[in-house]
Nucleic acid binder design. Structure first.
Lengths: 224, 224
DNA sequence: GGAATAGTGTCTGTCAGACAGTATGTT
DNA sequence: AACATACTGTCTGACAGACACTATTCC
């Protein structure tokens, strides 16, 4: 049996926190689906590994330095007919970033904007990107529970309140500030104290932390 | 920019419990890596969706009816040079099955065997299949905590002790039978009683259960 | 009866949820 | 001073880990 030819792309679910959880979408400049909204992404080059392609596309579409952004593979999608031109398999990546500037349009994207994921059901994206976006949001929500992923939405140095705001916005819930404080400061390896404080949230100065070395949260955060 | 041609394969991490946690490997019958051990898998056909290709390959390599096997996507792998012939992206799938008969060799596999994952470090698999296998085992171990995945290793009807044995073998740990019993019977939606009993494990007859409708375990099982 | 496994009850320590109270900034 | 936010302490209920005890089968 021979092997049919495929094209391979990477697509990006880029999430950030503005006043709520938002995802980056771009208006397509070329066919197919020209003029419609889609996830950023593009073809993998002949000599390029998949994570490299994802980071390259991210840089092209957002102008973001790769170092400051958490990026991880989400899943592969390859239904026949998902691209009308030819057989395309896409590897979707999930990227999480602190509040970003208004996105700059990339080369093959005429326009870009942040769409609140709350309005996700009302969005119609090109290809099967609705599904990919939904999978990415669900992944992010789930991983907040058992990993330090929430710190990826924060600046390098952050307060406990800022971290709590991440959980509240991503989960669309309210958490008790005092119990949250006790929990995260008591979880070994989650937070690394800097010794500095800030009053940028108002009120009494808060400790500034960096993310610790823990990769897994035991016990996990509870969505309540 | 144009899109370079790729081949797309699916590869399978098939896990089962024999006396310990085992993975299916096949001896390759064709180049490259002819004669070496690899994960079962093959090219995705021109008109085939990825999950269909995975189920087809699983049936071809194990002769298993697709209904009785849990299968889920693991990840995509596409480093340049991972196949010396041409640029290949593979979508790996994780399949979990109850104790299977000795595998029957498929069409393009000269031989097949179960390898205990405990001996994983000593195994040299073709391509990047060591890495894929390790990722699959880690996924299975992690998902036992917060999903009813352990039931996928059991026959359709099983006892609490059989379910406990799954956890003990996959996690390579010992669990207290009494606390385990209290925990799983108290988790809503995990077990559906059949009303029947069995003495196949010896001793007092045990209730037989089917898996319940729960997709997520709250609270999760703890690896202790 | 003895051995083996199934299942229940009880105690104890830990931790999450609730919330009172104190500390330290800004205005 | 009033206010806002940071942080600590305390109570309570739920649950995990430990393990004694009872139940029901096979030999």
């Amino acid at each position: 049996m021979d092997h049919p030819p495929f094209a391979v792309t990477v697509d990006l679910v880029v999430l950030t926190l503005r006043d709520e959880l938002c995802a980056l979408v771009v208006r397509r400049g070329i066919e197919p689906y020209a003029g419609e909204w889609a996830l950023p992404g593009g073809f993998v080059r002949a000599d390029e590994d998949l994570p490299d392609a994802a980071r390259r596309e991210l840089a092209e579409e957002t102008g973001l330095a790769p170092g400051s952004v958490h990026i991880e593979q989400l899943a592969g999608y390859g239904a026949p007919g998902r691209d009308p031109r030819l057989r395309v398999v896409t590897i979707a990546y999930l990227a999480l970033a602190p509040d970003l500037p208004v996105p700059s349009a990339g080369t093959d994207a005429a326009e870009a904007r942040w769409v609140p994921v709350r309005a996700l059901a009302a969005e119609r994206l090109a290809f099967d990107h609705d599904r990919i976006l939904a999978d990415g949001v669900e992944r992010a929500r789930a991983k907040l529970e058992y990993s330090p992923l929430a710190t990826a939405f924060c600046a390098p140095e952050f307060t406990v309140a800022e971290l709590r705001r991440v959980y509240e916005l991503v989960w669309d819930t309210r958490l008790d500030p005092r119990n949250f404080h006790r929990k995260v400061t008591g979880t070994a390896g989650l937070l690394a104290p800097t010794g500095r404080t800030t009053t940028r949230d108002g009120g009494r100065p808060a400790q500034l932390y960096r993310r610790g070395e823990a990769e897994l949260l035991y016990p996990p955060m509870l969505r309540s």
